[in-house]
Design a protein around this nucleic acid. Structure first.
Length: 721
DNA sequence: CGACGGGACGC
DNA sequence: CGACGGGACGC
């Protein structure tokens, strides 16, 4: 939180780029048939990998494992883990490039440097790049033709055009954030001694793809085997721009129930883990999604340079055991791949090839953290709802987007028929959020409020309605930029009203606020709060009321006091856990904290508790499902929910809250569809909504959100390249 | 405008 | 409980 070196290179970047919208659904063909998304948006997101205000890290943080003949990357997973065990090979030291590779497969980011005079030495080059981050390695390459070290060779060409032939080299940074900084600071801006012009600094071939795979890709398990790419995207896109979805299928094209989701940056991916892992139950499933950072792809023979994060012939047991060695699990079969890949080998000791490395950054860049426009709402609701209601819930998360801010240029980039109603509410201009949000903001928030109010009056669980009312008035008097902020606050409040740990969602909304605000104009409580603590850590499993991070929009104590006692019990159950379980290349479990990026071998107590709680919730949920049959809910009459309402008092608290949540939230997607004229009978509206809404509205809203995100990224990207 | 060194798993 | 396709940064 303290030292952000980046001299404010951050928010400002006005990339005059045109938001090239994706409209990935516009291309013909059912989603099922497309295993690949047409929109790859190359160069769109990948360069923006995460925060740019990355605290400098001394070389002492250098991930272990990269020395002395280690092959396994310290961090093949894109995680950096605590140094577990003595450093070996001592050899990381000075001599710059010293570290014997293995880094090729990590999240280290390799840059290509062009216009390097052939006379340049590492001593000249390295310091330049160390100004911008941890330089893991500098590699001067040989002249291809002569095979000579690129040195003073004048290369007796017929015409000796100076002696400074343009050469090149590679510089490897510990993280892509640093690499991004270097690009920004040096590309075409620095001339090495003897150089005839400024150097070119860009990612080495294949690095972007490689890093993307390492950093932004999630493994998703417990998918409904019927699920389509589109369904999956709908679940994940509230957390950020989904670049790619891949469902793993058998040879008969049947889903294996797992797959991969690629975001355009790590923060989004982390947010999705936070919001979905262990909590979101897909329609038709009785088990929550598993969401983790993907293990690096299994290498294919011959792949080496730009290849996957680890693998290849490189993960033999070579490292000493980490400190917390635990007994070798009785693993006898390869895990997830060919023998060479997984076998633990030496029987008594944990394979050391790979091990957690030290955390790389205590704190993700707060700035880069606000991308989850949709908030975690979907996840939250999904957690408390049976599959029968998960659909509207998901839509809710998405429905927030257009309410939050009017996204520019949606109408021009999205299929017109998909914009129907939504489009009508959105300005077609190219203006950016703060401005456009104003126009919408004046209307939307009022609508937003009503459902909550109605629910509050009719349900016993809406004690904080008054506060909501008050604050909803404010925006009207505020400046445009503040208005946007206020809208977000309202959303946060709506969430708080209806939901136990809407904390997470609230903090995300706050992040959005911060991001939207011009850096100078952030005098609001929100930005301050957010600065003090990592937004992501705000999402850490905490019991709701006492967390200071959420206070700006949190209900007041008086409101809390009116909260029915049963709720308190519920709010003690965190909706997410920052820790998640992973498998090392050796096949051993380890645990990774997506907030602190810390990793451990031992299962954190926090996660254990979380899982236990989840488990019990799950049981309650299942019990509740008997009363509220899954599927077909969309076409059923409102009676269903009425029934539940009648019986809920005798049911578990989960169910109780579940019902309440649904009631509050139902109207939202409805309104997002532009049909918000009849909101008296919520149940009725809900039925209507469900009958008429179906997937189209969902997709519509969805795309609006994506469009907005797209714009956001364009505007905040590091602008490299 | 230049594009990959060094060392090297182990059935 | 399921672990990786397809196409290819941007000067």
């Amino acid at each position: 939180m303290e030292k952000y070196r980046g001299d404010r290179d951050g928010g400002g970047e006005v990339g005059g780029r045109h938001p090239r919208m994706a409209s990935r659904w516009s291309s013909a063909g059912p989603a099922e048939q497309r295993h690949r998304y047409p929109d790859h948006s190359r160069g769109g997101g990948e360069g923006f990998a995460g925060g740019r205000h990355h605290p400098y890290r001394g070389s002492q943080d250098f991930p272990p494992g990269g020395r002395g003949g280690f092959r396994g990357g310290p961090d093949g997973f894109g995680h950096q883990m605590p140094m577990a065990g003595p450093r070996r090979g001592g050899g990381f030291s000075g001599r710059g490039g010293g570290s014997p590779d293995n880094a090729d497969r990590s999240k280290f980011a390799k840059l290509f440097i062009g216009s390097v005079p052939r006379t340049a030495t590492e001593e000249e080059i390295r310091p330049v790049f160390e100004e911008h981050g941890d330089v893991i390695e500098v590699a001067l390459i040989k002249d291809k033709r002569t095979g000579q070290q690129q040195d003073f060779q004048r290369h007796s060409g017929s015409r000796c055009r100076t002696l400074t032939y343009a050469g090149c080299c590679f510089v490897k940074y510990a993280t892509s954030e640093e690499a991004d900084r270097a690009i920004k600071a040096l590309h075409n801006q620095y001339t090495l001694p003897g150089g005839s012009g400024p150097i070119q600094v860009r990612y080495a071939d294949g690095e972007r793809e490689r890093l993307g795979a390492v950093e932004h890709k999630l493994f998703v398990g417990s998918l409904n085997k019927q699920a389509t790419e589109m369904e999956i995207e709908e679940i994940f896109s509230p957390y950020g721009h989904v670049e790619d979805i891949y469902i793993m299928r058998d040879d008969r094209k049947q889903s294996r129930g797992c797959g991969f989701v690629k975001f355009s940056n790590r923060e989004m991916a982390a947010a999705a883990i936070n919001g979905l892992n262990g909590t979101f139950v897909m329609r038709g499933c009785n088990q929550p999604l598993i969401v983790r950072f993907a293990d690096p792809k299994r290498p294919r023979p011959g792949e080496s340079r730009g290849g996957p994060a680890f693998g290849g012939p490189g993960f033999g047991p070579q490292l000493q055991a980490p400190i917390g060695v635990r007994p070798v699990p009785t693993i006898s079969e390869p895990i997830g791949g060919p023998p060479k890949f997984a076998e633990p080998m030496s029987g008594g000791v944990r394979p050391n090839t790979w091990h957690p490395a030290s955390r790389e950054s205590m704190e993700p860049s707060p700035q880069a953290s606000g991308q989850g426009f949709g908030s975690n709402l979907a996840a939250k609701l999904g957690d408390l709802t049976t599959s029968s209601v998960s659909m509207p819930i998901q839509q809710l998360g998405k429905a927030q987007i257009p309410q939050t801010m009017g996204f520019p240029s949606i109408s021009q980039d999205l299929p017109s028929q998909q914009l129907l109603n939504l489009g009508a509410q959105l300005p077609a201009s190219q203006a950016l959020f703060p401005q456009t949000a104003t126009a919408n903001g004046l209307q939307i928030p009022l609508n937003l409020q009503q459902p909550g109010m109605a629910a509050a009056s009719s349900q016993q669980q809406m004690p904080a309605s008054t506060i909501s009312q008050q604050q909803l008035q404010q925006p009207v008097q505020q400046l445009p930029s503040q208005l946007t902020q206020a809208l977000l606050q309202q959303q946060a409040q709506a969430l708080q009203l209806s939901f136990q740990s809407s904390q997470q969602a609230i903090s995300q909304l706050q992040q959005q606020l911060q991001m939207i605000q011009p850096s100078g104009a952030s005098q609001q409580q929100n930005s301050q709060t957010t600065k003090q603590q990592s937004p992501w850590s705000a999402a850490v499993s905490q019991s709701a009321p006492s967390n200071p991070v959420s206070t700006p929009t949190a209900v007041t104590s008086s409101n809390v006091s009116t909260t029915p006692p049963p709720v308190a019990t519920q709010s003690a159950v965190p909706m997410s856990c920052d820790w998640s379980e992973h498998t090392s290349p050796d096949g051993y479990k380890y645990y990774y904290n997506c907030v602190t990026r810390e990793s451990r071998w031992e299962k954190p107590e926090e996660l254990t508790r979380f899982e236990e709680q989840k488990k019990s919730q799950q049981q309650m949920k299942l019990a509740a499902q008997h009363l509220q049959p899954p599927s077909q809910a969309q076409s059923q009459s409102p009676i269903q929910s009425t029934q539940v309402s009648q019986t809920q008092q005798t049911q578990s608290q989960v169910q109780l809250r579940q019902q309440a949540s649904v009631q509050v939230l139902q109207p939202l997607p409805y309104q997002a569809s532009g049909l918000a004229s009849q909101q008296n009978n919520q149940d009725f509206n809900y039925a209507q909504f469900q009958a008429a809404n179906s997937i189209n509205d969902s997709a519509r809203v969805h795309q609006a959100m994506q469009a907005g995100q797209e714009v956001m990224w364009k505007n905040m990207g590091p602008g490299n390249q």
